[in-house]
Design a protein around this nucleic acid. Sequence first.
DNA 1: TCAAAAGTGTTAATAGTACACCCATGA
DNA 2: TCATGGGTGTACTATTAACACTTTTGA
Lengths: 226, 226
Amino acid sequence: MSPSYYSLYPKFHVAVDCIIFGFRQGSLQLLLQKRPFEPRQGEWSLMGGFVKNDEDLDAAAHRVLNELTGIHNVYMEQVGAFGSVHRDSGNRVISVAYYALLNMDKVDNALSHVHSAYWENVSTLPKLLFDHREMVEMALHKLRGRIQRQPVGFQMLPSLFTLTQLQQLYEAILGEPLDKRNFRKRVYEMPFIEKTPEVDKQTSKRGAALFRFNDLEYRKELIFKL
Amino acid sequence: MSPSYYSLYPKFHVAVDCIIFGFRQGSLQLLLQKRPFEPRQGEWSLMGGFVKNDEDLDAAAHRVLNELTGIHNVYMEQVGAFGSVHRDSGNRVISVAYYALLNMDKVDNALSHVHSAYWENVSTLPKLLFDHREMVEMALHKLRGRIQRQPVGFQMLPSLFTLTQLQQLYEAILGEPLDKRNFRKRVYEMPFIEKTPEVDKQTSKRGAALFRFNDLEYRKELIFKL
DNA sequence: TCAAAAGTGTTAATAGTACACCCATGA
DNA sequence: TCATGGGTGTACTATTAACACTTTTGA
C-alpha cells in the first residue's frame, strides 16, 4: 500500500472548544459566546474554532483563546475529544475540548465584546449548545482533580493575592466550603507561596497580607519530589 | 451564514489508536501490531484505524478492538486526542487514543495473528511508531489513577482469580510492590469481591481461594456512596 | 521432610478534620 | 466603640504503612 492508502478514508471537520475559567468576587466564571453563525445562531456556546491545516491541536486552542481574549501564554489542558456522529446538528464535527485558566483582568474586553462573549457564573450557567454542557462538566471535574495536586489556581488570580481570595477560589472550584485554619496551614507548608510585605486594604479595614506564587520555588519543589 | 459555513474549513483524517492491556504470568502486556502498510511498514505500532463517516469516536475504538481480538464489551477509556501537525509522517492524521483492558484468554489468536499482532511486556516495549509511545505512557498514567478509585482491574483477570493474582496485577500496573497483608485487608473491605468455595491449585500445593467480582454489589456500593 | 506459596493482626506514623477566639482598623 | 474581615493552635479521628510467622500439601 502507498501513502495514498490514507485517501481511502473519510475526512472530518475538527474543532477545538474552550472552557474558559475565570474568577471574580468569590465566584468561578465561564466566558461564553452567543453563537455568531447558523445553525443555532444566538444560542450560548463555548468559544470554539476549526483547526487549520498547518496547526497543532494545542495551537488551535491557544489561537482561539487568544482571538477572543487577546491573552497569550494561558494555562490550558486538554479535556478530551468529543465525536458522536450527531453532536453538531449542522455537520459532522469532531471537537477537542480544552479548559483554560485565566486572570479576568487581563482579558481584552473590547475584543471579547466583538465576539459577543460574556462571563457567566459557573453555578448558574444558561443552557448550552450541543454537548458543551458535558464538556464543561468534564473540564470542571479535571480541574478539581488538577488543583488538588498542582498549584494551577494562581493562573486565575492577580500576581498578588490574599489567602482569603485563594481560599474562595478553591471553594468555588471544589464547590464546598473549606476550613480557614486548615486551609492556611496547608498553604504555609508550600514554600512556593510567599508572603510579601504588601497589604491589601480593599476588603477589610485591618488589611490582609498579600502573597505571591514563586514559580522557581515550585520547580525546585517538583525536582525535590522525584 | 448558512450551514455551508463549515465547508470553508479544512477536513482531516481522524483515527483511533488502541492501547490494549492484558495481564499474564505476573506481567502487564500490550497487544502491538507490526504496521501492515506504508509508510513505516513493519514498525511496531498500536492497533489503530480510521473513523468512519457514520461512526461515533467511541464506536470506532470498539470496532478496531473487535476486529483485532474478536471481543465485544471491552472496558475502554479515552486517553486523549493527539494532533501535532507532523505526528504521522505519511499524512496529517488526528488520532484519538483509547486504552482497553481485556482478558488475554478471550482473544481470538487466529484473528490477531492475521493482523500481525503480538503481546509485548509493558516493561520491555520495543520502539514504537510516531507518538505511540507517548500514548502508552499517558494511558498507563490514566490507568494508574483509575485503578486506585475503581475496580477496573477485573477486566483483565479470569472471572475466578486468587488474591495473589489480583495483587500481582496491581503491582504490575502501579509499578511498585505492595504489602500483602495491607493489600488483602483492603480487598476484604470491598463487599463486591466475593470469596468462592473454589480453590486454585495451579500455583501452590496448598491451594489458594478463588474470588469473584460481583458487579451487582459494586453498583450497590456506588449508589451507597452518593 | 521440606520447599513453596497461602494466609493472617497489631502497632506506629501520618494525614486529615473539627473547632473558637483575639486582632487591627476605619467608619 | 463597634462592625468587619484577618489571623492563629490544639486535640481527635481516620487512614496508611510497616512488619514476621504459621499453615498446608505435593513432590
